[in-house]
Nucleic acid binder design. Structure first.
Lengths: 248, 248
DNA sequence: ATTTCTTTGAAACATATGTTGCTTTGAGCG
DNA sequence: CGCTCAAAGCAACATATGTTTCAAAGAAAT
């Protein structure tokens, strides 16, 4: 069990129909931004198609491929990343359960970045047609998606800022905080404790440093009693100090 | 004359009517992505309102302010930036002539970042209502704006990647290349030479290093004959070497 | 012209981070 | 069980970058 978190079924169980494990995280995330009716929820659950389980560190979309359909992360952590010719990779954003992978991007002819799983994941592929129809017919869903996207863009600005300004320690703490907070928001983590199915290589690619340095920083954080990380389980021990260290 | 580039009047002198110096850079930029009819161009020129000249390093929108209307850069260079409580600033994106400052952002209640001029600028404020009507009635314009935005997002990903992966030299060269290329695309620079009305402090905030280090890197680039920069005028002397150094 | 201020240039030293190479641990697997 | 391999931990050294400080050069103002 690599990165699979607590609750499997989580509430709304649709009778026999299409799996709602799918609608689960997505509707929970949209529900953070806009109230959804029962019809909305039902429509969302209809999106379920081509659900697959994918092992860690697998490409879902490779850089340079033509743009096809969208993805939905159901379980685990995936990431957008850019890979340079040199082999160096930079992670642009984390995709957590309930994250719908930018349909707008499909308007680009080709992906200028890739998407890969970091942990073991459960993924659904969403056909663009179904998604567009949903947006056209369900205003609440459309609004929720728009707001979710704005939130993602804001997060991307914060990510960029951290990369430019902060020291490695701060950047790493921000990643920890982001994962815990966002997982918590959809009920997949406690307030200060949750799954963190990332290798140190993944973390390095998130914060733009070498793996060795990630390890150094991690040891420091452990020694100072700020953080406990063991076997993909993360605990934030000093939330106040952490929030101070990792900037506003 | 701080940052105003070569041409003061730049051709198109508007008779008495609504200034078309405004439609100029905007329609030229949109025209890169989609063909525009005469009617489209006329409609675009109608957007002209509240044009102002702003001195270098002035805030147009401050972080935390409520979201109001959009901006259009007519002349000069402005930037989106984030300012930390520590005082450190990180520039997220450059706004060049013809750049329309993200209308979608207005859906956020408050700006999570600021916008400031870097050089002397000519700026127009665009009322949201007029913009939305234009989008509703002129499909070509709407499409152009969408594509322009996708382009900006792609640029933002590249910016983030450079910040995470490259050395300071590479990052600085990317900024140079971006300014020259984009200015060139709207006819405000030659292929390998153009205005660069940025101080070394601005550059440092772009690439996430100290001012001193920017200076060091600049000297190196000059010594190696890669670049010539004197009084806001930039020349790229070895385009091939530059493209190699600054990564794909 | 003289002053004042911003921008640029430059040196010396402190530190964060990269690199290389090796060891230890732990998970999966025959 | 012991094998194998990826992940984690760790040390020593090299380098990129930060910090502080000061001088020189331009630009704007009087």
């Amino acid at each position: 069990m690599t990165g699979l978190s607590g609750q499997p079924g989580t509430g709304l169980r649709p009778p026999p129909g299409p799996l709602d494990g799918m609608a689960g995280p997505l509707s929970r995330r949209l529900g953070l931004h806009v109230p959804l009716s029962g019809d909305d929820l039902a429509a969302l659950s209809q999106l379920a198609v081509r659900e697959t389980v994918v092992v860690a560190h697998t490409d879902l979309v490779r850089q340079g491929e033509p743009a096809e359909n969208a993805f939905l992360v159901l379980e685990g952590i995936a990431a957008r990343y850019v890979q340079r010719a040199s082999g160096a990779r930079q992670i642009l954003a984390l995709l957590l359960p309930g994250d719908l992978c930018d349909p707008d991007l499909a308007h680009l002819e080709r992906w200028d970045h890739g998407i890969a799983t970091l942990s073991h994941c459960r993924i659904a592929r969403v056909p663009r047609a179904a998604l567009e129809e949903l947006i056209a017919t369900r205003p609440a869903v459309a609004l929720g998606l728009r707001r979710t996207k704005l939130e993602a863009e804001a997060r991307s600005r914060a990510w960029l800022t951290a990369l430019g300004i902060g020291l490695a320690t701060e950047r790493l703490l921000r990643v920890f905080r982001e994962v815990i907070d966002r997982m918590h928001a959809v009920g997949l983590a406690e307030r200060n404790e949750g799954p963190l199915p990332l290798t140190q290589v993944d973390m390095a690619e998130c914060i733009g440093t070498s793996t060795v340095h990630v390890n150094r920083v991690l040891q420091d954080l452990r020694r100072s009693g700020m953080v406990e990380l063991k076997g993909n389980r993360l605990r934030l021990l000093d939330r106040a100090g952490l929030d101070a260290l990792s900037g506003e």
